[in-house]
Design a protein around this nucleic acid. Structure first.
Lengths: 194, 194
DNA sequence: ACAAACATACCGACTGGTCGGTATTAATCA
DNA sequence: TGATTAATACCGACCAGTCGGTATGTTTGT
């Protein structure tokens, strides 16, 4: 009973990621998602209250992934954490084709839909705080030079997002994975106290 | 006769910016735009072949604005040009409320719609080249330190876009105009040969 | 008078969502 | 264990409304 149900739910989620990514939230119809998942509309609305609820479920899963990634680097030093991020970049840009446009979709919906915004803004601010405290910690450790942690945090996030966006628009315009790695190196280097 | 016609066209363009920004390309219907502009559907389709054609006209105007801005700083030195951009930030973030979401909308549509992508990608690559040569020039002048101009260009654009995006998601989360100015200072400073 | 500019009524395709009904599985009990 | 009941999972026709776009008619400036 739960077996089949769970599978259906997963199929819907996967199809939604695929279609939201390629066509966008509005253009991807519920019918499309059902067809892609190979299920009926009834099954869809059995599992999700609405199209928006499905989107929120997707967002939730994404945020949980980030959370657990952050949690994994809890006990490391500030520079170590940043270095770990550098190693994560290849993976991110490799799997970009599938999930990355979803990131833009989250952003866009959040900027328009109050419910989705509420679900996004709290984690975003949490991440910002996390980065800020990470840099603060690095400064306290003496491994980072004196910088405004707030500002540095915004800039790091900005760089990451900006590169993601550029790679999205022009995937073949550059070796993005390499650009991302070198950028991180450059940023961390300018932070490091030598 | 031409007078009124021109006015109608402008009204459509203005209303489109407003509605595309607030609701997005898909959600903003032609009927909505007509109502906002205070004109009829017949008038709309008299001026624009399709909804997409209107979007392309908007994109074109935006690109021209950027082009002329770039053109204006043709004969200045590299650091001067960057400094000029710093002074432009307050204006950009002031008027962000209106036109900024349109920028995201352009991006999103370009990543999905082949026609719009074609119209976007050429200018984007031109801007990237411009930045790259600007940095190259700065290095040649001796005013910039030795950096990979390609990489630095991507990073500068990334930072700008990332900050814009963050300000879009969380307008009241920070004094974005200040963050942008300080970020530019920081970036230019790390580029400057002292 | 004649063409450009605009208005109105309308079309067919498609939308998110509903609903009555049917399989499929789990729980109950003889 | 095997039949019965109840709950869950699923189906697909259907609805009211919206969409971009068109056909046709009217106004306006020259």
């Amino acid at each position: 009973m739960q077996q089949r149900s769970e599978e259906t739910r997963t199929k819907i989620l996967d199809s939604a990621i695929k279609l939201f990514s390629t066509r966008g939230f509005n253009a991807a119809s519920v019918d499309d998602i059902c067809e892609e998942a190979g299920i009926s509309k009834g099954a869809f609305y059995h599992h999700f209250e609405s199209k928006q609820a499905l989107f929120l479920a997707l967002l939730d899963g994404w945020l949980q992934t980030i959370d657990s990634a952050i949690d994994a680097s809890k006990d490391k030093t500030a520079p170590e954490t940043f270095m770990q991020m550098t190693t994560a970049f290849p993976y991110i840009f490799e799997t970009a084709g599938d999930g990355l446009p979803m990131f833009l979709e989250f952003w866009l919906q959040a900027s328009r839909d109050k419910t989705i915004w509420d679900a996004s803004i709290a984690p975003y601010r949490r991440y910002h705080k996390y980065f800020t405290s990470l840099i603060k910690k690095g400064v306290a450790e003496g491994s980072f030079v004196e910088v405004d942690p707030e500002l540095a945090s915004r800039m790091i996030v900005a760089t990451a997002m900006g590169l993601l966006l550029q790679s999205l628009l022009d995937p073949k315009g550059a070796k993005w994975e390499k650009v991302a790695r070198e950028s991180t190196n450059l940023l961390v280097n300018s932070l490091l106290n030598k």
